[in-house]
Every structure is written in structure tokens, then in C-alpha cells.
Amino acid sequence: MPLLEVDGLKTHFFGKGGVTKAVDGVSFTLDRGEILGIVGESGSGKSVTSLSIMRLVDHPGRVVGGTMRFEGRDLLTLNREEMRQLRGRRMSMIFQEPGTSMNPVLTVGFQIGEAIRSHERVPAEEVRRRTIELMDMVGIPDAKQRLRQYPHQFSGGMLQRLMIAMGLALSPSLLIADEPVTALDVTIQAQILDLLKQLRDTTDAAVLLITHDMGVVAETCDRVVVMYLGAIVEEAPVTELFDNPKHPYTQGLLGSIPSIEEKVDWLQAIPGTIPNPTDIPSGCRFSNRCPKVMDVCHKIDPALLTVGEEHRVACHLYEEQESRDG
């Protein structure tokens, strides 16, 4: 049984201007010890997906459909207190801006300790010992001294390490990292990504890595889900996705990135701009920007088809292939 099973998730926002279908029928699974990347641009619904799993979607947003099973439990049937128990203890989340996620007037030691104290009754000395252990684990030097310091005395990279320490305080089985390195410099990014991989190896926690950066995906993830305007357009193991991208959007995304290895004259940009999520094109949601668009694409929303081992794609181009093979 997978650690997390999301099936047909729909999270919509009911604003004054109408309904925004931020997440509209998303299904995927995540196993223990696996790093799954959810990659997409603005409006893709990748962050709302992760907030839905944590049950942290606020008014005017609401999960309106689908199921989410985590460690065998149906998340949508849990009450507030049961959900609070789960968050922090079994699943935790780190965000893009580590600076704004911490309280500036409390020491970092207190804040990491709080993650422990709010879920377990343990003596102060034990909390202190575990806090130091956690800070050591995420690579903060002089933990004994530094736990008495305040967030502003740490750099961005160090703060993200502290956030990870806090997230791991109670050894959760799922860590959701929402753009964890986007705000960091590239040499610091590399350190944090290495740390995430190393923690996955040592603790067997699963990581759901939300990012817009294909480079981060290639370096870190085992499997990838590509989202566009609230839906999954492609899903594959990481090497398969980069070797053999099927969806025209995935192809465009990869063609948009200048390569470090070889210099090309022109990038294959995707034409047009991402539509407003309140105004999703009919049929295939990528149809108005797709270079391979066909008549059917404007009419029918394509379903996810299996096109290879663990490789799924939502595109009419591959329908014939599937009916031939299947």
C-alpha cells in the first residue's frame, strides 16, 4: 500500500468573480522513501495540491471532490483535532521563504522545541537534547550555542535548515517541501537538496517536492508529476520524463530551459501566456498554446493514458497508440 494515495482531488475557490478550479481531478501515489516532484508554473495548482493534503486550504477554497488516503486513513474524514495530531507528527511541510515562516522574537531553539512539545510530553532537558540533535542532523554548526539565537542571526540557507529540522522533529513519514530552494542562492540550493536526499536515505521519509525548476527535479526526484492549470498532464519516473517527454507542454517546458551543456541559438519557447485559472480553455487545457493542436483538442479534455512503464500522459496524440497497443 502506498504511503499517500490521492485520487480525483478537486479543490476549488469560490470567489466573487466565479469559481477557480485550482485543482481539478488530480490523482497520484507516493511510496515510503520516495521523492516525488510536482512541477508546474504559476496557476498549475501544485501548491494548492500540497495544502489540500495538509488540509490547510482556507476560505474561499474548499476540497470539493476526490479522496486522499495517508497511512491507510482517509484524510477527508478526520476532524480538526485528529488532523492537528497528524500534522507535525506524521506529515510536515516546509515553505519557500524560511524567514517568514519563523517567529522573529523567539529563539530558534524554542521554536524547534515547540514542534516537539506541542505533540509530546517530554522533560525540558530531553527537548533540549533532541533540538541539538536535530540541528546537528541538518548541518548547523555549534548547535549548542546557536539554539539561543534568533532567526535574524541566521542566513537564508541556515533558516531553511532550521525549518527542515522543525519539520523532522517528530520523524514524520511525509515531508512536503514547497519550493524549498527557490529563494536561495545556487550554492546554498545544492546544499539543501543534498540534505533532503540524505534525509530520505537515512529516515525513509517520503518527500513531496513542489517546484517550478526542472533542474531541481532532475537532480532530486525519483518520479515526477507535471501539472498545468489544475490538472496532471504527464507523470513518469525522472529519467523517463527527461529522455522521453510525451506531452507537448512537458516538451515545451524542457525546450524553454537554456542548457548548460550545449549552446543553442534559439530556445523553443511555448507561445502565448498561461491562461487565467478562472478561464480554463475548453477541451484540453493546453490547446490554445499547443504547437500540435488538433480539432479534437478543442472539444474533449484528454484522459491520462498509460504510454509506458509508469508513464502516463493526458494528450490526444497518443490515443491511437494506446488503442493499437492495448
Binding site: 550554492t187 540550493q189 545544492a190 525548476d213 532532475a218 527527461f242
Partner: peptide, 24 residues
């Protein structure tokens, strides 16, 4: 170090890094 820290968009090329410790 900067060059080796760039995430490469090729999962087959997860490279050994020239690791930089510490902060700027």
C-alpha cells in the same frame, strides 16, 4: 563550485559537487 552547483536538467548527470561549506 558555482558551476557544479547548477542543477542540470539531465537526471543521468547527477554530478559530484565541489562542495562549498558555510555562508557568504
Amino acid at each position: 563550485a558555482l558551476m557544479s552547483a547548477i542543477p542540470v536538467t539531465n537526471p543521468r548527470l547527477r554530478r559530484e559537487r565541489v562542495r562549498l561549506t558555510g555562508d557568504i
